[in-house]
Design a protein around this nucleic acid. Structure first.
Lengths: 329, 329
DNA sequence: TTGTAAGCGTTATCAT
DNA sequence: ATGATAACGCTTACAA
């Protein structure tokens, strides 16, 4: 149905090579010929067939982004950042939902894309940045753009300490975790307490099943019911913090007057919660940009396998209402 | 680099046609031959080249979803639903962000995909379901899966009326709107009031710039400042309703005791707000499923252009805390 | 400056 | 039951 190169060539009375030359702005084309070709292109409404071009070039201009779910605003905002970064590199993004980046799920579209981005590598629901890999094989090198999990939560905790908080809850610890964002963040919390000369209190390290608003609300509920006194909450992500705010609101506990709350992720939601949530901005745009760039490099260097690289991006603490200074202090 | 059909054929000592036959489970293959081919496939780690297959078949197995932004949970949840529906049809989804489905943006990946889904057709930021179209041309027929905008808001308004509310605000009207979801929903609101024998009060129809949490909060602020008394809010989407809840919370106005609030969209957020938001569930999964199916049909019927079709899906009213019956009533 | 022709990896039509 | 071989639409040496 669609017009092809030879349709155009026939109409213009030239060879397909000449048409191709015009399309690719090759030098050495007589202006008259060029014009004739352009007219023919317009006349038949020619659009290059990208599939054929892809077969020839071995590239598709598409990368895939594998993430657990778009319903989680963290991943939705990450996806948006990736799509924008990819567009800047002239790449389109195919989104694939998959818990745990199992090879099976990858194989799905692996032949269709030039490269793949994973928001999480293991089966842990937690994420720490982005992984980039060519679709080549399971053993090809993986680049990683990550964030300063430990330092950021340490800074968050120190922020509450500086406000005079002394009974600070770590919301989001996970029992058996020894790796992943959870344990890195717990470490930062403990470091901050230790540096301030405070003892770690196990009853202030609250475990959750998953880093969701629901679990944040439930854990806060349980915390209140336990009677353990506290005056600050360092939540390991914004969803947990927003859940905590909900429970505190329900129980009529005032934030920030009675309890200071800080999150991690800087979701759009954090700006509109009541009160607006102080949080760690992990550098999402930069993570997306760098991961896409590294992947684009790998795609370009096809054949010369670059060694796996890891980049860590800086974070920022965004102060909002939930940790505002108490008026009477 | 990757093994091809002829690599396999050479190793198995057969022709590529035979290999292809084995791959496609064609009949009439001697078991011994089949086994030899399968062994060869395993030996060289052969994976079919999808790009070549696409060129041959004229299909890519990819559709694109064009939407304004993933940061808006409405679109993120819609995207998730579309991706899941597409997976069921064996399709992958490429996400493209674009305000207003201008032809320029479409052309981008049009050659790469078998079909396109738009969450909004005109330049209006509002959406009403999904539009489905082949990448063929701007004049090809467009299918539309939509929701009962008017009936749903009418039901929402009647829900508040049934609770005894009489001064019900319509939050989300837009000044010059004569078409699109906004005007359809305003119509439903007015119908409900009229049916209840109530006069429409212009001061209760509150305009907003955009259907965001921010504007919902601001409009509610303005409403309170205006001194206009009201006891219910029908928000034209959940974002507006959540913004309203924020302002009401800040002003210590109790929901649902003093004011009942109902939204539209049934976002995940609606479940976790304080109080949890009563809302209209517009049948998002069904919209996504039907739109993908219609598109898949069009892709299959390539050549026999089906006429443009429109399907309207049913809605449901989801009762939560924000319209709970007042205890003392 | 332009044309001819090979080849990307498949699928599918013919023979055999 | 299997093999040659011609497309699919494009890019690109190589010729002319």
């Amino acid at each position: 149905m669609a017009a092809t190169l030879s349709d155009v060539a026939r109409l213009a009375g030239v060879s397909i090579k000449t048409v191709s030359n015009v399309i690719h702005d090759h030098p050495n084309i007589r202006p008259a010929t060029r014009q004739r070709v352009l007219d023919a292109i317009a006349a038949v409404g020619y659009r290059p067939n990208l599939t054929a071009r892809n077969l020839r070039s071995g590239r598709t201009g598409v990368i895939s982004l594998v993430l657990p779910t778009l319903r989680n605003p963290y991943f939705a905002e990450l996806a948006e950042a990736v799509i924008e970064a990819a567009e800047r590199e002239g790449l389109s993004v195919l989104i694939e939902q998959s818990r745990g980046a199992d090879a099976g799920a990858r194989a799905n579209t692996a032949q269709l894309v030039d490269g793949m981005l994973f928001s999480t590598l293991g089966s842990e629901a937690e994420d720490t940045g982005l992984y980039a890999q060519l679709p080549a094989g399971p053993h090809s090198p993986v680049d990683h753009v990550t964030m300063r999990n430990t330092e950021a939560i340490r800074a968050a905790t120190e922020h509450l300490l500086a406000l005079g908080r002394r009974r600070i809850v770590a919301l989001g610890a996970r029992p058996g975790d020894t790796s992943g964002a959870g344990s890195l963040r717990l470490l930062g919390y403990r470091q901050a307490l230790a540096a301030a000369g405070l003892d770690a209190r196990p009853e202030l390290e609250r475990a959750v099943e998953s880093w969701t608003r629901f679990d944040g609300a439930a854990a806060t509920e349980a915390l209140l019911n336990s009677g353990t006194p506290f005056d600050g909450i360092v939540a390991f992500n914004d969803a947990l913090a927003l859940g905590a705010l909900r429970t505190l609101g329900q129980r009529a506990i005032r934030v920030p007057e009675q309890v200071s709350v800080i999150g991690f992720d800087d979701l759009d939601d954090a700006r509109y919660s009541l009160p607006a949530l102080t949080t760690i901005s992990p550098g999402r745009e930069q993570i997306a940009t760098l991961a896409v760039q590294m992947l684009a490099e790998r795609i370009a260097e096809r054949g010369e396998p670059l060694p796996a690289r890891t980049i860590t991006v800086p974070f920022a603490l965004v102060e909002r209402e939930s940790t505002a200074q108490k008026a009477a202090d």
